[in-house]
């Protein structure tokens, strides 16, 4: 019998090591695994490198992990968004590193990691400051820049429905980076609103196959980061 479920979000992140690279799903508030992020704050791992499209909103979830001083480096495409207050202050104070990656390159670097492809050539960023110092090569008369895969030690994912094998379905645009982060991480940890028996999800509708998932935790009434931001909540 295969059963990837664990009892709590605390159990799921308990073995996170200092210096780990953590891929955090979500685009803005949609798909942000708030309960897993708060569990990681409680767990206490330090010097983390975090991959996310943004750099946290308000003072909850990813922003509160950053505010807790546990994040040494952010890898993201757009760290400057409305409601992003924690990251800009730390960045200007020189207390956190930033690697800015074009959004599509960020996605493809994660996908490549999951697919076992160590690097690829892309037209994105050619001739711009973000290609400075990177290897380029011409194909069919056009210049492309080489980008490396982006592997993670753990991925924190929010799914709508999971089965005990780790097959996942997401909710609308909360899907965003989650499927490719599931692929890119050594250990993929999923909080799911509903957990069902194998066979309950139509195989035709599975978005992330369970092979990319290691741990599943039932979080039946997940906090939506959007609601927390509206209520101006902060964590802890």
């Amino acid at each position: 019998m295969i059963d990837k479920t664990l009892a709590s979000v605390a159990d799921a992140v308990a073995d996170t090591e200092d210096g780990a690279t953590v891929a955090v799903a979500g685009f803005g508030a949609a798909g942000s695994p708030v309960e897993l992020l708060h569990a990681l704050i409680e767990q206490g791992a330090k010097k983390l490198t975090v991959i996310n499209n943004n750099a946290g909103n308000g003072k909850v979830g990813l922003a509160s992990l950053i505010a807790s001083g546990r994040v040494a480096k952010m890898i993201c495409s757009f760290p400057r968004s409305a409601g992003s207050v924690v990251f800009p202050d730390l960045y200007r104070a020189g207390k956190i590193d930033l690697e800015v990656v074009p959004q599509g390159t960020l996605a493809e670097r994660l996908r490549a990691a999951g697919a076992g492809i160590p690097a690829f050539y892309t037209p994105t960023s050619v001739g711009t400051p973000l290609a400075d110092g990177k290897e380029t090569r011409d194909f069919d008369g056009k210049t492309y820049v080489m980008e490396p895969w982006l592997r993670a030690d753990i991925a924190l994912i929010k799914a709508d429905v999971a089965d005990t094998h780790g097959n996942l379905i997401y909710n609308m645009t909360a899907r965003n980076f989650a499927p490719i982060m599931c692929m890119a991480a050594t250990t993929t940890i999923v909080q799911a609103r509903e957990i069902v028996d194998p066979g309950s999800i139509n195989p035709e509708t599975v978005v992330t196959p369970g092979i990319f998932v290691d741990r599943v935790i039932h979080v039946p009434n997940p906090e939506h980061e959007d609601d927390l931001l509206r209520a101006a909540r902060s964590y802890p």
């Binding site: 495409s77 757009f78 760290p79 400057r80 968004s81 990251f87 800009p88 960045y91 200007r92 930033l98 800015v100 990656v101 074009p102 959004q103 599509g104 390159t105 892309t122 037209p123 994105t124 960023s125 050619v126 711009t128 400051p129 973000l130």
Partner: peptide, 20 residues
Amino acid sequence: STGAEDAIPAVGGAMDLVAG
């Protein structure tokens, strides 16, 4: 980006869109 020294670089999907 204006390239200003104190600006926090943020590119989003703009470079991918114009390239593709």
